[in-house]
Amino acid sequence: MSELNQTEQTDEVLYMGIDLGTSRSVVSASNGIEASVLSFVGWPKDFVARRNLGKDILFGDEALEHRLALNLYRPLEGGVLREGTAQDEQAVAALIGHLIELGGGKGRQLRIAVGVPAECLRISKLAIKNAVGAYADKLMVVSEPFSVAYGIGALDNAMIIDIGAGTADFCIMHGAVPEDKDQRSLLSAGDAVDTHLYKLLSERIPEAALTLNMARQFKETYGFVGMTDKLVKVKLPVAGKMVTYNITDEVNRACTHILPPIIETTMDMIGSADPEYQERLRNNILLAGGCSQFRGLADYLTRAMEPFEPCRFSCVPEPLYAGARGALALAQDMPEEYFGKL
């Protein structure tokens, strides 16, 4: 690439959508680059760790793999941006900077839309703006379910349920930017599944060596609800030997554990909507987020709602990138006067 072309590329405005998630964060950029990373940031504990790792900071899977040698941070916990210590704030800023670099944004003029859990939007919006504002020329912060809805064009008579790690976020779309009353959050989601699965397995197989991270991996690989014809078998270390266990029942129970409040909140939000539009909402409920990938989830929820009011649940395509792509579309479409107001 010539020096002139490099300069022209650097000066070009780049639009980015960032889905800042409790468990995984994703970036989608107008240059066509998309990337995801687990929302972990780690700094070497001491000079030995720094020498061994050869890096000053690690992110995502790499940080998790070397967690014993790191001061490890997960900046978003329970769907809320952690604040209080300089290191927490530094971790948030570092994660955002890493996402921007992955998206090819280094040295560019950036206009960024950031999707965050609805609970985080209410509590920590200013802190998020401060963290992202260090990198972006123009910025807006929106809830994740709204960015999902915008990206797939579900802008009217639709309900988005984004079931992530820290929160399950609900958003009713009625043809305009959703207000606070159109959105709700539950603090029991994917992390609660991990914890419950870890508890169930620890009680049933106390002799096995098990960690919460292993339970998370089992959930992400095998998560399902309802009936299944596929047994979930995993190998766990027992006294230094690998032993195979059937954990089908435990995985099902753990994944189903978070669904009753989701069903109740769905009913409540539909019931509080304009009566003339409730039937349309019931037939257009879209599931997003990592837990939407549980096998059988949409069918399970549809059956669970039948005794009350028939509803139709379906999963958004490519849930991993749906939020970031919607945020990118918002950044590209948003009139100038809206940047900084949302």
Rank of each mutant, 00 (worst) to 15 (best):
L236W: 03
A168F: 03
Y135I: 13
A35D: 10
L212N: 11
A131G: 02
K125I: 03
I205D: 00
A136I: 14
F47Y: 12
M16I: 14
V41E: 11
Q293P: 00
A113R: 08
Y338S: 09
L53S: 08
K125A: 09
A322Y: 09
E250F: 06
E8F: 14
G323V: 12
F218G: 00
P335K: 01
F313D: 10
Y300H: 11
C315V: 15
A63E: 05
I128L: 12
Y321A: 08
N71E: 15
D156G: 00
E250A: 15
D156K: 14
D229K: 09
P275G: 02
R280S: 15
G175Q: 08
Y135P: 04
T7L: 11
M269G: 06
E34G: 06
Y73G: 00
Q90L: 15
A208Q: 05
Y338C: 02
E77W: 02
L53M: 14
A113C: 15
I96A: 06
Y300W: 10
G164A: 05
L14D: 08
V37M: 06
V234H: 00
D229T: 15
T10P: 00
L20M: 10
N31L: 10
G17V: 15
Y150L: 01
T22I: 10
I112V: 14
G42N: 12
M140I: 12
R280P: 01
M1V: 07
R67G: 02
K55H: 14
L287G: 04
A158E: 01
Q109G: 07
G151M: 01
G240I: 08
L342S: 00
L210E: 00
K341Q: 11
K55I: 05
L126H: 04
I128K: 02
L76S: 05
A215D: 02
P261E: 09
Q293L: 14
D156R: 14
V234W: 01
R303F: 02
V114S: 01
M334Q: 06
G289P: 09
L102S: 07
A136S: 11
S202M: 06
S2K: 15
I262L: 13
E337N: 07
G54R: 12
